[in-house]
Simulated scan of single mutants.
Amino acid sequence: MQLALAMEIITGAKIRLRTRKNKYLTAGSDKESVRLERDGSAKQAVWTVEFVDGKSSIRIKSIYGKYLTATNEPLIPKAKGHKVLQTLPERLNSSTEWEMESDDTFGKDKLLRFKTHYGQYLRPYGGLPPFRNKVGHDVPCRTQTEDKIQWELEILETGDR
């Protein structure tokens, strides 16, 4: 299936994004933060997809009506990655746009990568604090970490088309 067709299918859809370690991308109840949680049944784990007119990008909207946004803010001081937040900018811009990439678009695994306008990828972080359950964006530095930027797409409800 072509990526453009896949984008058409998920436009307006309610989705969940799951990491390879079975954690879900969730909107923080503070209506700003984004984190990873094991409970995918929580309403904060449900996102809506919007197609960006005239581009091959999407916007991902939280249950709070805010967009998944790549920021320039460091994830933690002196770290390579940058924060991803929920925001509602006055004007929607490229920081709220994500390009979907896949080696086998919506094949059996539905594994996707989400790339910012600047070539960085939505990435889950794990391990010990302060990285535990954080979500950011950066470029993987080794081929061993490339699978960490893959997300499994779960379509809960298709869009109104």
Rank of each mutant, 00 (worst) to 15 (best):
L156P: 05
G65A: 01
M100R: 05
G65T: 06
D104E: 15
E152P: 00
I63V: 07
L128Q: 06
K134D: 00
S95G: 05
D104V: 12
F106P: 06
D147T: 10
R91L: 10
L92M: 10
E32H: 02
K134H: 10
K108P: 08
Y67P: 10
Y24P: 01
N72I: 00
D104N: 14
S94Y: 02
E37T: 11
K110M: 13
D104M: 11
G119C: 04
L68H: 00
E99P: 04
E50Q: 14
T87R: 15
E90K: 08
P130D: 06
T158D: 01
K110L: 15
G119P: 02
V84H: 09
V84T: 04
S95T: 15
L5P: 00
D39H: 05
A6P: 01
G107Y: 06
Q2I: 01
R59I: 07
I155V: 12
D103Q: 12
D39S: 08
E146D: 14
A45E: 06
M7H: 13
E152S: 12
E90F: 12
Y121R: 07
S102T: 10
G127N: 07
G107E: 08
K80V: 15
I76L: 09
D30A: 01
T116E: 13
K80P: 03
A42P: 01
E37L: 09
G40Q: 00
L112F: 15
E32I: 08
N72W: 03
L17W: 11
Y118T: 14
D160G: 06
H117S: 08
M1K: 09
F51A: 12
T116G: 09
K78Q: 11
R113P: 12
K134N: 04
G136D: 05
A27D: 07
I63K: 13
Q150P: 06
A4D: 13
S56F: 04
I10T: 02
I60A: 01
T71G: 02
D104I: 14
P130F: 03
G159W: 07
Y64D: 02
L156W: 05
E154G: 13
I58R: 12
Y24K: 02
R18Q: 15
D109K: 11
R38V: 08
